[in-house]
């Protein structure tokens, strides 16, 4: 079945991120000078403006920082309501790593604040891309 939900228009600059998803790694630019993580990826570190950032795989461990159960979705997403969009706070600190994602593998009514999550990977059929989703830790 053709995937009809929106897909990212990926850039050469961020190729290591999308390549990472294919290898089931969630990579975040980490500053080689001050050690801070920068999400979403920017061309230089937001803490010290160093351009020396290294794509570094994170653990994928996260917690629910906020969530919304969507009852009216845009475009092809409307075929899947109700579904859950989550703001997941990744375990790696000190910089807050709050990532927007789609939460799968759980009844929307069972989501709670602070619930442990992990990054999971979804291969998109007929497209050369892997997406990240979040799922509860079972």
């Amino acid at each position: 079945m053709t995937y009809l939900k929106p897909l990212p228009d990926t850039s050469e600059l961020n190729r290591p991120f999308w390549e990472g998803l294919r290898q089931h790694e969630f990579r975040v630019p980490r500053c080689a000078d001050c050690g801070d993580w920068n999400w979403i990826p920017y061309p230089a570190c937001r803490s010290c403006q160093s351009e020396h950032q290294v794509w570094t795989a994170v653990s994928g461990n996260a917690v629910v920082w906020s969530w919304s159960v969507v009852h009216r979705g845009p475009g092809a997403f409307n075929d899947e309501v109700p579904y859950t969009v989550v703001l997941a706070k990744l375990a790696e600190e000190p910089r807050s790593l709050i990532v927007t994602g789609n939460l799968v593998g759980i009844d929307p009514a069972e989501v709670t604040m602070g619930m442990p999550l992990t990054v999971v990977y979804e291969e998109v059929p007929e497209e050369d891309i892997t997406l990240y989703r979040f799922a509860p830790v079972r």
Binding site: T2, Y3, L4, K5, P6, L7, P8, D9, T10, S11, N14, I40, P41, S68, V70, R72, G73, P74, G75, A76, F77, N78, D79, E80, Y83, V85, T100, G101, N102, V124, E127, L131
Partner: peptide, 26 residues
Amino acid sequence: GPRGTVAPKDKAPRVPEWSFMQHGAY
């Protein structure tokens, strides 16, 4: 609003690289 987003028939639409739309958000 979401009524303004029409579902495509044959190919996934492209959105900016970090757009929340790929996660079903608007």
